[in-house]
Design a protein around this nucleic acid. Structure first.
Lengths: 156, 156
DNA sequence: AGTGAAAGTGGATGTGG
DNA sequence: CCACATCCACTTTCACT
């Protein structure tokens, strides 16, 4: 069990700062300062506060996997053998670079993952040679994402 | 139909640059320059090349929704009425801030979405008052993510 | 919480190899 | 493709309010 995270409240200025940086992590602090009408140093303090509260967990360049040839996104539901420890499965899944998300879920499957592949053949290979060979994985179901229409963070 | 994206190849230096910036979008270019052993100006040129190729699609501050109280993540599979246009559904879903991902998928459902909620009650409210009221949505199935173990970008 | 100033660093660009 | 040099803008910190 993880320790409980405190829920924090943020004001309008924090929201403006976050919205700017969530849209573009390299937005100059001074530019934000000019837009919200306070000094750069004040923005700094607020950012430190937000980082300390762990609301900001980092910043990332976002790349488009399609440009590297990863044109096929798929979701897979995994049925597991009751006798196997989830942690073992997670450890194996983390080793597979194509697996970009992994959830322990309610419902028909035990584990639900998102994968990125070059094409359907790659999906097949991944299933046969990587996923299905993990000890404890009994059966899988695959959904192909034909079109990703929304992909965003929670609205601030 | 979108226009076809060209698949590009990147060399070892590009990979190092991308890995640094994918981990932390605010990594100074000069720091990367020192690490890979070429000048800052060269890094600049390569970044422009990668942006031009649309491999880099932007940069974002990543926030942890849990700290704002969004402790419940769920996936929902939507069954649609054949007579309704998908675009109409996408448009409605985009208006719902809790919906952070939306895919048109193969398999039992027509549309598959990811949502962020405060709690199970919020999930229920979302289903009853937002999702199920969209014209064309016949039925839904919901999976709750009890634990997110992996959430990353494709490995470079 | 916020300001303002000061010192250091980094971003961006043009010239030339 | 890359280095070097330059200029300007931005980050970061601190004393003060």
């Amino acid at each position: 069990m993880k320790t409980k995270n405190k829920v924090i409240t943020i004001d309008g200025i924090d929201k403006k700062i976050l919205r700017a940086l969530m849209a573009d992590a390299r937005t100059p602090i001074l530019e934000i300062a000019r837009n919200v009408g306070i000094s750069g140093a004040a923005i700094h303090q607020r950012l430190r506060k937000l980082e300390k509260a762990k609301l900001i967990t980092g910043s990332k360049f976002i790349i488009d996997p399609k440009v590297l040839g990863y044109t096929t996104m798929a979701f897979m539901g995994l049925y597991l053998d009751n006798s196997v420890n989830n942690e073992t499965i997670f450890r194996e899944l983390k080793k597979i670079p194509e697996v970009v998300e992994c959830h322990y879920t309610t419902g028909q499957w035990n584990i639900f993952i998102k994968v990125l592949c070059y094409n359907n053949e790659h999906v097949m290979h991944l299933l046969n040679n990587k996923i299905q060979t993990i000890v404890g994985v009994l059966r899988t179901e695959t959904l192909i994402s034909l079109d990703k229409q929304i992909d965003r963070q929670i609205k601030i």
